[in-house]
């Protein structure tokens, strides 16, 4: 063995030396990095565990049947915990905001992907992204202080707190989600398809509506689902501008209370730790989490399951 002498040889650096500690260090670093990545799994588990734990505690006090089928929500007075009005109001916000975001978002995506020149794109795309960067509490403030009076000025009979202006702002907020994900899907459609259609004599309009959009429909739909799940979980806009009175059948001009808003009201109103109202917080949280999480999963599934594969 000449190993001993090579280490002493000054012209040869000791690559092989300290091998054991170096390997140990390398693998220690690897495991540390892995731990950081695995933290995300821990976060998910922690969310599920804490929500489930306290929701179960809640359901020992209030029966699940009463929770999921009850039609009045009044946790303080009378202690009736029917979640249906909250769900119906969340649904109303989601539908109304979708009416704003889906047409505008899809149209923006189609324009950016098919019509816009490089120059207009470089201006319009960041401008759209600004909409996603504004904090939601600011959108709530817009809805309360500017949109509602503006709606009144044009003759819409809205109250101080109302479903309509809050949903409008939620809709505006999620436009960039729809547009950027849909645009990615539309840009991913290979040019050969467009050229084929042009070759058959199609106009640009026909190419866009009958080739590009159908070819990218899975991506477009998955962006809708993601945006709607965002609207369902949206909190500050509805808390600030939609009011605090749950209605089983919501009217767009009146005050309502979606699930997120009810959670905020419960948590900010000095709850004693062990009451049913405190645990109701987690029961609603669990409902919300299950809905949004399954919508996210569904969005991924739609995107991969119905993707048109080219090439």
């Amino acid at each position: 063995m000449t190993n001993e002498s090579t280490n002493e040889d000054p012209t040869r650096p000791a690559f092989a030396g300290e091998n054991r500690t170096r390997t140990a260090k390398e693998s220690a670093i690897k495991w540390f990095l892995f731990a950081c990545a695995a933290l995300s799994v821990f976060v998910t588990l922690a969310i599920v565990a804490t929500l489930l734990f306290d929701a179960v505690e809640f359901f020992t006090r209030v029966s699940p049947v009463a929770f999921f089928t009850g039609t009045t929500w009044s946790p303080k007075i009378g202690e009736s915990f029917g979640v249906l009005p909250l769900v119906s109001n969340t649904l109303a916000v989601t539908v109304l905001s979708a009416l704003v975001a889906i047409p505008v978002g899809t149209a923006s995506a189609a324009y950016l992907s098919e019509y816009a020149t490089e120059r207009t794109r470089s201006v319009l795309k960041p401008a759209l992204e600004v909409l996603a960067g504004i904090p939601t509490v600011v959108y709530g403030f817009f809805a309360l202080v500017y949109v509602t009076p503006a709606l009144r000025a044009v003759g819409v009979p809205v109250g101080t707190f109302n479903l309509l202006s809050a949903s409008l702002m939620v809709g505006v907020m999620i436009i960039p989600m729809v547009s950027s994900l849909s645009e990615d899907a539309m840009s991913a459609v290979p040019d050969s398809l467009r050229q084929g259609a042009y070759g058959l004599g199609a106009t640009k309009f026909e190419v866009t509506t009958t080739v590009v959009i159908p070819a990218s429909i899975s991506g477009v739909f998955s962006s809708f689902i993601l945006a709607l799940s965002r609207a369902i979980g949206e909190t500050m806009i509805v808390v600030v501008a939609a009011g605090m009175s749950p209605q089983l059948v919501p009217s767009p001009f009146d005050s309502v209370q979606p699930m997120t808003s009810a959670m905020v009201q419960l948590s900010t109103s000095d709850l004693a730790g062990g009451t049913a109202a405190y645990y109701a917080l987690f029961a609603i949280g669990l409902t919300l989490f299950v809905i949004t999480f399954s919508m996210n999963v569904a969005s991924n599934w739609v995107a991969s399951r119905y993707r048109e594969e080219y090439e």
Binding site: V41, T44, I232, T235, T260, F289, T292
Partner: peptide, 24 residues
């Protein structure tokens, strides 16, 4: 699984994270 999980975590409503913070 970890990657899917991270993508899904990005879509969890912020109010739910608040509950997590409260409990944890």
């Amino acid at each position: 699984l970890i990657e899917t999980n991270i993508a899904n975590l990005a879509g969890v409503p912020s109010v739910v994270y608040g509950l997590l913070g409260l409990a944890l």
